[in-house]
Design a protein around this nucleic acid. Structure first.
Lengths: 97, 97
DNA sequence: ACGATAGGCAAGTGATGACTTGCCTATCAA
DNA sequence: TTGATAGGCAAGTCATCACTTGCCTATCGT
């Protein structure tokens, strides 16, 4: 649902996670944790990140695959593409196909 | 700031307001109130809508112009176009909140 | 001048959301 | 098996947010 996508995007930490997945797809929870801490200095617990990933997943922005004890997270931009054109009026010459 | 834009879009009522302004630009506060009530059955006070409009305005999604005792609200899609491509182009992650 | 219209300001309330802590299960390596 | 790794579940705290209520200012028409 569109509601879930907008709410998922409302949090800066979740947007950081999406940035991280754009840069490197298929990361595990712990990978994302360490990269958020080392690269952006975010002091968040593992559970916090886990909950953020759950929100992103239920919004369809992240899809997961399990392999053994690892759970890999992949970005899915399809919900974004559906949503962003909602208020873009068709009177813009460069954007209208 | 991108943060304000995402937070502004997080609320369903504010998204309704943007829908309303796409359909008919330059409405006053009372016009928006009555249209939200009659067309979508939203039972909200005038102040609630006013606060939502303030959020949208500080996010840059709505620009206002005063004429006498009227204040007209116009849609501005420029902030949307800036944040849209953040995760759609893997080469260039953008800066943030 | 008056009353009616259009809008703003500020404090208070109730709900949602972000984050933590503690404990639990499952998988792998030695 | 033991211990370490990867992750999940649930309750609790604290802040933010949406919305209301009440009162205030400014502008217009008569």
């Amino acid at each position: 649902m569109a509601e879930d996508v907008f709410k998922a995007l409302a949090d800066p930490t979740r947007r950081r996670i999406l940035d991280e997945l754009v840069e490197r797809d298929g990361q595990s929870l712990f990978e994302i944790c360490t990269r958020l801490v080392t690269k952006h200095g975010l002091g968040l617990s593992r559970q916090a990140i886990s909950q953020h990933l759950a929100v992103l997943e239920s919004a369809g922005l992240v899809v997961t695959r399990r392999e053994g004890r690892y759970k890999f997270h992949d970005l899915n931009t399809e919900p974004l593409e559906r949503i962003m054109t909602r208020w873009l009026r068709p009177d813009r010459p460069e954007d209208t196909p």
